[in-house]
Amino acid sequence: MTRFLAVAAAAAATLALTPAAGIAQTPGGAYYTATAEAAPAKSSVVTRSTIWRCTETTCIAPKATARDAIMCELVAREVGKLASFAVKGEAFDAASLDKCNARAK
C-alpha cells in the first residue's frame, strides 16, 4: 500500500508540473501576436471562439484550431489593418501579411 501511494504521489506531481498539450509555451500564454496600425476600439476581441486581449496596438491570443493564416485574417477583420502578425514569435513575411490585410475592415 505504501508503495502504491508513493507511485501515485509521483504521478500526480509529474502531471501537475507538465504543461497541458496545445497550450502556448510563450510568456503570458500568447501564441498569436497581432500589432494593429491603429489601436482597436475594444480591449478584447472575439474571433470565432478565440479571445484576443489588446493593449494599445498589440493583441495577443492563445493557440486556436484554425490555420495561422485564417487567425490573422480573423483578427484583421476585427481590429483593422495589421502592421505585423506573429505565431510563436515567428513573424509573417510581407506577402503573407499583405494577404492577411486584404481581409481587414
Rank of each mutant, 00 (worst) to 15 (best):
G80R: 00
A69T: 07
A16R: 05
I51N: 10
D68M: 07
L97Q: 00
F85I: 01
A34W: 04
E73A: 15
V75L: 14
T33K: 07
T65D: 14
R67E: 13
T58R: 12
T26K: 02
R77P: 03
I70D: 14
R103T: 09
T26R: 05
E90C: 02
A41K: 12
A9I: 05
P40H: 07
I23R: 14
A13Y: 02
P62Q: 05
A69Y: 12
A36G: 09
A13H: 02
A8P: 08
S43N: 08
M1F: 11
W52A: 12
K105M: 09
R48Y: 07
A10N: 08
L97S: 00
T18S: 13
G22P: 05
F4C: 08
T58D: 11
T2A: 15
A41S: 11
V75F: 14
A39N: 01
C59P: 06
E73I: 01
T47K: 10
A83H: 07
Q25S: 03
T47G: 11
A21V: 06
A6V: 12
C100G: 00
T26I: 00
A91I: 06
K63Y: 11
K63V: 07
I70T: 15
A8T: 15
D98N: 10
V7I: 11
S43P: 00
V46M: 13
F4M: 08
A30C: 09
A38L: 01
A38I: 03
I60G: 15
E56S: 15
